[in-house]
Design a protein around this nucleic acid. Structure first.
Lengths: 238, 238
DNA sequence: CTAGTATGACTACCATACAAGTCATATCAG
DNA sequence: CTGATATGACTTGTATGGTAGTCATACTAG
């Protein structure tokens, strides 16, 4: 059950670090990009055979994935890709909003170096070009870059690690359907608003701008649930 | 290098779940309670011999600990307990403040069930008794219970998991010196203030009450750094 | 036909062996 | 005495065998 797309991920991966780390990166991406369906059973042996490695690093990658909330390891039963639910999406969004707004406020409070501001502006410019040419995958990468540069630029490495973890849950929904999500132009404008507020050192505006940005997914979520009711585990109004 | 205190942790552990999970719980507690000194070298073989288990579950527990930011696994070199620094404490506190205040606001916004409110009040009462009798260890447990019941009561399981992770970094500092931290009576009063604000459904007061509570460690931190300058990796004014 | 049971093909978990890299120390050449 | 080098005792990483548990299926007793 190894699609060519997944094999490609394995080949293209930089092979940095141990086999376990490489497996984790690849499997994580495969789950986020819906190459593995929610609820699908994985197996140490199956994966190890597919990638020609032993079961042990696969097992360790599974454990790491289970801690990231992407798979569910049931002893003596099997390992399953966790389902997507409105609850899980809302919970991940809740945590991300809390941390990202705090980062935004902190950045406005302490200020960012010219170098970081330049990087953020540059990323926004490239996002504009992506939006007009409709390069979805590239836009997602640049979006992640933006939030990472902002968090690390403000000196919040731990915060970024947390954001990265919960973000995986949200990205999975994003990959479900690009058209149903917010238009890229709107997202780019929100990025610009955030940087503007931070550069003006206005904490309240920085919080508000990030709050608006993080709330976008709440708007598109109901449509997604309707369109993909088969994917979402809880198809009922909350 | 296995102290009796650590062996006791191993014996007292409920032995629930796999060997790996049991090892993780015990080693995590041992690090938080400073049974393992910051910078100390651990070793898969040493631990496995000490607890009469094989290297594999120990190794997996190490990986989990490294993801929690408690140890640093350097391939082919060794595994070391990570040091304590002002930066790491401030970063962990930053994330915890962001998430806990969001939880507090959310609880005030949506309201809590009578059952949860009762549980919180009960925990506060027991904390009062602990404070007067000076039962340090028990107070720490009840404090963690309070924050867990609050987060889970508000339906934020993912948020609690994040809090639990970053809290470990902060607890390590707490265990350094109980007297230097905020008096228990003051902490209990802050807990009561939080519940009061939530029960009144006042979001702003709930945020403010949690903010004050989460800022306490910032007050005691400078004293801690002075008293334990040998423990902190960065002994210089920030 | 139904209920209970044995069977076999899975699963993750743990133990053990081997491989590969690091580093302190001892040894030896100059 | 000094410095380069080989050695051996470590370390974590990977591979593989065996154990115990789960579960669907087929079979058997009633």
């Amino acid at each position: 059950m190894l699609t060519p797309a997944i094999a490609e991920l394995w080949e293209q991966d930089a092979a940095g670090g141990s086999v376990r780390q490489r497996l984790y990166r690849v499997l994580r991406l495969a789950i986020i990009r819906m190459q593995f369906a929610p609820g699908q059973a994985l197996s140490e042996k199956e994966i190890s055979d597919a990638f020609s490695v032993s079961r042990q690093p696969v097992r360790e990658a599974f454990i790491r994935l289970s801690e990231a909330g992407l798979v569910d390891v049931r002893p003596q039963r099997g390992t399953y890709v966790v389902g997507i639910s409105q609850k899980s999406v809302r919970e991940a969004r809740f945590v991300r909003e809390a941390v990202e707004t705090a980062v935004s406020v902190s950045a406005a409070k302490q200020g960012l170096t010219d170098k970081v501001i330049y990087e953020l502006r540059d990323l926004i410019e490239r996002q504009v070009r992506c939006a007009s040419s409709g390069q979805y995958d590239q836009f997602f990468i640049l979006d992640e870059d933006f939030h990472r540069v902002l968090a690390l630029g403000a000196g919040h490495e731990t915060a970024w690690r947390v954001i990265e973890e919960v973000k995986a849950q949200l990205d999975r929904v994003r990959y479900l359907s690009v058209p149903d999500t917010t238009p890229f132009e709107k997202l780019v404008q929100q990025h610009a608003d955030i940087v503007d507020a931070i550069e003006r050192r206005n904490e309240d505006e920085a919080r508000q701008a990030m709050l608006v940005h993080q709330s976008e997914i709440l708007i598109s979520l109901p449509q997604m649930v309707q369109r993909f009711s088969s994917i979402f585990e809880d198809t009922h109004s909350s």
